[in-house]
């Protein structure tokens, strides 16, 4: 086998991308757990943790660009490196969404929400994380059927988002503790709720983008890609 250094570096970058994915996957569920548990210290730790995520992403990007510049990869090698670059950026954005949820948690303080809201947000975060875990596995194994299956799973996340959207639009009972007629407080709480749900929904969209990169790596085809 020739190009042993190149092969080793190619594998290391894929492994590092999976490590980055694991760092981010934890953040998604933790951000919502901290929100529901009013864990302010946890939210602050998560915001600080995002710097590590960014550093890891940038390290992967620089190493990938260096490999492209010095090794002139083509064919599958080139597609893998393109997928690494795209996937690292998608993961970094998912990390930003988790950090955004943590920031909202700090703003919310102890403002009460009804249990169905927590349940829906928790369900969204668990499903998004499950999608991400399986996408990372598909990325590592270049598993085409799995990538397609995960993309289809995104519809379930969208359904949950729509349910939360309905609650935010009709907050009676779901946002307790707001005095009747206090429009400002109602809008603010509904807005926070929408942002959290939006961040989770976008995280799942980013996961589908990762799956599309897996498809590109395997098939070399971009025709079916519909970037979110």
């Amino acid at each position: 086998m020739t190009r042993e250094h190149f092969n080793a570096e190619l594998k290391r970058l894929q492994d590092e991308t999976c490590v980055l994915g694991t760092m981010v996957a934890t953040s998604i569920t933790e951000a919502v757990r901290q929100l529901c548990a009013r864990d302010r210290a946890g939210s602050e730790r998560l915001i600080a943790w995002d710097r590590r995520v960014n550093e890891k992403c940038h390290a992967i990007e620089m190493a990938t660009l260096t490999l492209i510049a010095t090794q002139a990869p083509v064919a599958t090698d080139m597609r893998v490196l393109a997928a690494v670059l795209e996937t690292a950026r998608e993961l970094e954005r998912i990390g930003d969404y988790a950090k955004g949820i943590a920031a909202i948690s700090l703003k919310l303080g102890d403002a009460p929400y009804a249990q169905p809201v927590w349940d829906l947000l928790t369900e969204m975060s668990v499903r998004a994380r499950d999608m991400l875990d399986r996408a990372l596995d598909a990325f590592a194994r270049r598993d085409l059927p799995a990538a397609h299956a995960i993309i289809r799973q995104d519809d379930g996340i969208d359904d949950l988002f729509n349910q939360i959207f309905g609650i935010a639009m009709h907050p009676n009972g779901a946002l307790p503790g707001v005095a009747a007629g206090d429009l400002t407080a109602t809008l603010e709480r509904a807005n926070y709720l929408m942002w959290i749900a939006h961040n989770l929904e976008r995280s799942a969209d980013r996961v589908t983008n990762i799956c599309q990169r897996v498809i590109f790596t395997v098939t070399g085809e971009l025709d079916d890609l519909d970037p979110m």
Binding site: M1, T2, R3, F6, P73, V74, A75, T76, D77
Partner: peptide, 11 residues
């Protein structure tokens, strides 16, 4: 075979 050659993994 093309893949092996152009990626330098020929032979």
């Amino acid at each position: 075979r093309t893949e092996d050659y152009i990626t330098g993994r020929f032979g």
